[in-house]
Each structure stands twice: as C-alpha cells, then as structure tokens.
Write a protein that binds this DNA or RNA. Structure first.
Lengths: 207, 207
DNA sequence: GTCATCATGTAAGCCGTTACATGATTGC
DNA sequence: GCAATCATGTAACGGCTTACATGATGAC
C-alpha cells in the first residue's frame, strides 16, 4: 500500500524520501503519519526491485522541481531550495525517479486484484487518472460490490441480535456510513459512464 | 484492541474461544474476521495476566450459549445438548470466565487514554454501557475533539493543493465522512446530557 | 553553542495475518 | 471411510510503529 503511494507520487515528479513523507502527510489525508521507519525501507525495496532509481544529489544543481508540465507544489521546493545558498548541499539526499518497471508495477498495484479496506481503495481512486477508463470503472464497481456485501452483513447482524443502545448505535452508524459510500460510488460510476460511454461505446455486458 | 473485545464479551457471559470468534464475526461488524491465530494467543495472554480464568469443560453441564432472541442461556443449550449426546464431550473445550482483575483491565481499556482509530472508538462505544456516565461523556468528547482536528487537517489539505477530480473526490468524501461522524457524535453527546445531566448535575468545569 | 529543521537510515517490537498440525464428533 | 464442523493451538511472516543513531546546516 505504501509502495502504491510512493510510486504514485514519483509518477508526477522525482522526489527524495523526506519530501515524499511531507507530501503524504499534508498532501491527501489518507496515509498521513507514515514514519521514516517504513518509508525508507520501502524505498530501498523498490530500488532493489528496479521500480525506482536513485541519484545522489548533494551540491549539484540537479534540484528536483516542477518541470514545465504544471506548477504544482514543485515551486515551493524551488523557494525552499533558494532559502539556503544554492551550491551548498544539506546532507546528500537521494532523489528517486520512477523507472519503466516502476510504472508497470504502479498500474498493476493500482488495478490489482483484491482491494480490501477503505484506505487502499481511497488511495487507488486518488491515482485513478492513471488508469484506463474501463479499469477505472472496474475498480469502482468492484468496490461497489464489496460494499453491498458488507452492508448485507451489517444488516444481518442488526436484525436478530438484541443490542443495547450504544452497540446498536455503532452498528447503525456503520451501516449509514456504508450507505453513504455506496451513494458516492454510484455518483462516480454515473459520471464515469457519462464521460466514457458516449465516446468509447463500451461493450458492457452485465446489466 | 482484541483484548478489549474479548473482555467485553466475557463480561456478559463465559465463553470458549471458538464461540468468542463467532460472536465477533457476526455479533457486531467491527472486528469481524479475527483469526484463531490471534485469538488463542490473546486468550492465553489474558489468562497468564490473570484477567480471565479457564475451566476445562468437556462433558460438564456448564455449557454457555448464545440465546437466539429472548430467553437466556437455557434453550439453545438444551438443543445443543440434545444434538450430541450429553455425557460425551466434543473436544475438551476451555471455557473462559472473566476475573476481578479482568474487569479492572476492561474498564481501563474502555476508558483508556488514547483512542486512535475509528475501530477502537467503535468498539469502546459498543461496550459503553459498562462505563460510568461521565466516563462515557469523556469518551465521546475526546473523540469529537479528535475528529474536529482531523477535519481541519483535511480541509487544509483541500485548500491550497491542485488535485485532479479523482483525488479531490476522495478528499471531499473523506471530509464528508468526518462531518457525518461529528453529527453522530453530537447527537450522542446530546442524548447523554439529556439523560445524565438533570439527574447527576455534573460539576463540569471547562465550558 | 545549542536548538530546530532537513535528511537518511537501523533495530526492536506490536499486532495481526495465513498456513500448518492436531484431534474429536456428526452425518452421509 | 470421508467430509464437515467444532475446537485448540503453533510457526512463519508482513506491515507498520516507536525509538535510536547519525550528521549537516541555518538561526538565534
């Protein structure tokens, strides 16, 4: 799961570990508080597996920053870099760049078979623009099916058992949360069909 | 967290491991799918720590069971006893009973200092009837404060960053979820104040 | 000179999982 | 005899956390 997030960030621009952590912390809420103790080993693993490659950049002007593509928060990095004299390096930091193998792994993780928890799904959806339209739709509908099943389970638990007000409130609120998620998903699926359907004319079977 | 759930179930009636797992699975949705690989070691730990005590019950008439709807542990036990010959035991199962130390530990875990994730809070609230009214209120308001902070963080992340529609949708939906949780908590706190306030006349300081 | 920030890493441990091993009983 | 369910446990491993170790740099 961490690997997915790292690769997703590196897909946009090259970064060093410390910066990756910052992006995860205040970038999107999911996966806040990843610690260095898991981040650095993860980067090492990815490098060993050939998914990313690292360049030692200390005093060299090879500053990672926004390539002309879009002025995202890369400009902040420039500001920050200007903050201390360019020409001096802080501590030799390792800047990571994604490889072709990394991109392959990324989409594999992104579309991968078993999307379990809410976190993983949220992360996948957050990077969903890197997926092909039909893979995106598949992701959404797989999640939808899961939630339907989960809702049924929760409802089943509510039915027979006699719970006190607190336990009952927890169960009901859980069910409401799942329902809200389902409505959200339905909206997303609808929007997805609106945009891709008329153009691509997908040969969709089931329905 | 598992300990809390186990003690909570044993607080109501004595159970053996297999049955505890069943209760967790289809009792309340939280903590479904606890595996034996974590359950049995947890029970052993609790027993070693003196929080529970086990009685080897094979053919003894001390049979626990889950009442289907209304009545207490009688009827199902009869059915089950008829099912296999009474006097023969399946495999000597260990029936666990909570001790005084266990009860102490239970309330400690229940009211304990740092309620982090949604699961832990849900579990605590599900057993909240075992808490004193003011401890219950404290639990709710501690959670509320956490969620307020979390909401602020998410909102902060949304503001400056330029996210594509998918990432943005994830962040927004996360925020909505937190808001729904807050409304839920407010309702619970209100109800709590309604019931305990007029009677107890709590000498509340901060507000 | 020492504190905060940037930057990278290692070691120990927690909490949970899957997979494996064992064994009794019931039903086909 | 064989499979399913009930019942208890062990072993190996996975992912993430905290705490620890190191070191440069800029600010006060």
């Amino acid at each position: 799961m961490l690997d997915l997030a790292i690769l997703g960030l590196l897909e946009e621009r090259e970064l060093h570990g410390y910066e990756i952590r910052r992006q995860l912390r205040d970038g999107l809420g999911l996966l806040a508080n990843v610690s260095f103790g898991s981040l650095y080993p993860a980067l090492a693993r990815l490098e060993a597996g050939g998914a990313v490659e690292a360049t030692e950049a200390d005093s060299a002007p090879a500053r990672p920053a926004a390539p002309p593509t879009g002025s995202l928060s890369g400009e902040r990095a420039v500001l920050r870099a200007r903050h201390h004299q360019p020409g001096r390096g802080r501590r030799s930091r390792k800047v990571y760049r994604i490889t072709n193998e990394g991109r392959r792994l990324f989409v594999e993780l992104l579309a991968g078979g078993a999307p379990d928890d809410a976190r993983t799904f949220g992360l996948r959806l957050a990077f969903a623009r890197h997926l092909a339209p039909q893979a995106r739709l598949a992701l959404l509908e797989r999640r939808r099916a899961q939630l339907l099943q989960r809702l049924a389970e929760v409802r089943a638990a509510t039915g027979d058992r006699e719970l006190d007000i607190y336990a009952r409130s927890v169960v009901e609120h859980t069910a409401e949360g799942v329902e809200q998620d389902l409505r959200w998903l339905d909206r997303l699926i609808e929007a997805e069909r609106q945009s891709s359907g008329p153009l691509t004319a997908v040969a969709g079977g089931a329905e």
